[in-house]
């Protein structure tokens, strides 16, 4: 049912992470955007701001709901996706591509992230609740 690319890592807060050297690109998963519905607003932090793992770094909002997005690792914001600020529907249309949210430069090696298989299992359990 949900699309979970195998080359990405995930969190239990439904973010995905793509590691490339010292940089981690972050977005919300296909499952997360489908649960949220039409995304109408995205708030992202200023470039250079630092976050601890698990800290809220912004919000993704639908007509009815506000969903916080959490830093999947500790680091500083290297880049934000200005395209999703102007066109929040990108988060629905292409959550793993043009709908990415922010890039972090991490300070310590990421840990505790889920593999695609583990995340798939996790959302299956969530959906059965």
């Amino acid at each position: 049912m949900s699309n979970v690319p195998s080359d990405l890592l995930y969190t239990k807060e439904h973010e995905w992470v793509r590691i490339d050297g010292n940089t981690a690109t972050v977005g919300i998963s296909h499952f997360a955007q489908s649960q949220l519905g039409d995304v109408v607003f995205v708030e992202l932090p200023d470039v250079g701001k630092t976050f601890e793992i698990g800290e809220s770094f912004g919000t993704v909002e639908s007509v009815k709901a506000v969903s916080e997005i959490y830093a999947p690792l500790s680091g500083s914001v290297a880049e934000i996706n200005n395209a999703v600020i102007d066109a929040p529907e990108l988060v629905n249309d292409d959550p793993y591509g043009d709908g990415w949210l922010a890039k972090f430069e991490f300070t310590s090696e990421p840990s505790g992230l889920l593999s695609a298989a583990e995340y798939e299992q996790f959302i299956k359990e969530e959906a059965d609740k």
Partner: peptide, 11 residues
Amino acid sequence: PVQYAGIIAEH
């Protein structure tokens, strides 16, 4: 049901 096709489309 909170939504079927999506809130904006349903609205």
